[in-house]
Design a protein around this nucleic acid. Structure first.
Lengths: 137, 137
DNA sequence: CCGTATCCTAAAGGATACTG
DNA sequence: CAGTATCCTTTAGGATACGG
C-alpha cells in the first residue's frame, strides 16, 4: 500500500497534489470512516472533549441545539470507532464521563485547524454568499 | 511506536488549547459554515477538484455512489460559499467546468490531512469497532 | 443523572423522466 | 453534456415519556 503519511505526500508534490482516486471508490475503507466522523455534531463533540473529560449533560449544555437522542447516538458512534472513551464513575446518582481516547487526540489538531479556518475566512464566505444570492435573486 | 497517551498528545501538539466555547453557540457564525461544508460529499468533491478543473459528469464518475441530484446540489452549495468556481466553457455541446476557488484551495491542506489521518489509523479504528461490537453483541 | 423507547415530522437522497 | 423537476422511499432527528 502506498505511503499516505503527510510527510510522504509533501515529498511527492509539495504544492497541492490531488488525492488518490481510490479514496472515492465505494470499496475504499476510508469512505466508511468519513461517513462516521465527517459530520457536524461529531466534530463539535470532539471539540468539547478537547477541554477534558466531560459528563453527558455538561456536553449537552455546551452544544446548544443538540437533542438528547442525537448526543447519545453520536457519542456511541464515536465510542465505537475508538475516538471517545466512556467511563461510569459511581452509582448514586449515576455519573458518566466522556473523554478523548488517544486515537481521538490524534484527530484533534485537524479538527482544530478546520475551526480556525472557519473563523479566518468567515468574511470571505459571507461575501461569496451575498454575491451568489444577488446573482440568483 | 509513538506515544499516544493523552498527556503526550497534549504536549506533542502545539495547538492544543480547547476550542473556544463561543464555537458551540447557535449564534456563532462558524456553525453556519460547518453546517455547509462538514459533510462527506463536500469533502470528496473538493478532493476531486484538487486534481484540477473537472467537468460535471467526470466528477460524478469519480465519486462512485453519488446521485446526479446530490452532486448538483452540493456543487451549488460549494459555489455559493465561494469554495468552488463554475465556468461554462462553450455551447455545442454544453460543457461546464468546476474548479477550486482560491478560498477553496486554502481548505485543501486540512481536508487532505483528514484523508491521511483516515488511512493512517484505519486499523486502529477497525479494531476498536470489533472490540465494541464484541462487547455489545 | 444518564440514558432507552416510542412516536412522529421534516428532510435527505435515489430513480426516473424531461429540457436546453 | 449538464442540468431541473417530480415522485417516492428512507433516514435523521426532535419531543415526550419512561426506566436504571
Amino acid at each position: 500500500m502506498e505511503d499516505l503519511s503527510p510527510e510522504a505526500m509533501e515529498q511527492a508534490t509539495p504544492l497541492s497534489p490531488p488525492m488518490r482516486p481510490e479514496c472515492f471508490s465505494q470499496d475504499c475503507p476510508s469512505r466508511g470512516v468519513l461517513d462516521q466522523i465527517a459530520d457536524k455534531w461529531s466534530l463539535m463533540i470532539l471539540a468539547v472533549l478537547s477541554g477534558g473529560p466531560t459528563r453527558f449533560n455538561e456536553i449537552k449544555r455546551r452544544l446548544e441545539g443538540i437533542s438528547q437522542k442525537s448526543l447519545s447516538q453520536t457519542l456511541r458512534k464515536l465510542e465505537r470507532n475508538g475516538l471517545v472513551r466512556r467511563e461510569v464513575l459511581n452509582s448514586a446518582p449515576v455519573a458518566v464521563q466522556y473523554s478523548l481516547s488517544p486515537l481521538g487526540h490524534t484527530l484533534l489538531p485537524h479538527f482544530r485547524a478546520l475551526y480556525c479556518w472557519t473563523h479566518e475566512y468567515l468574511d470571505q464566505i459571507d461575501a461569496a454568499r451575498q454575491a451568489f444570492d444577488a446573482r440568483q435573486g
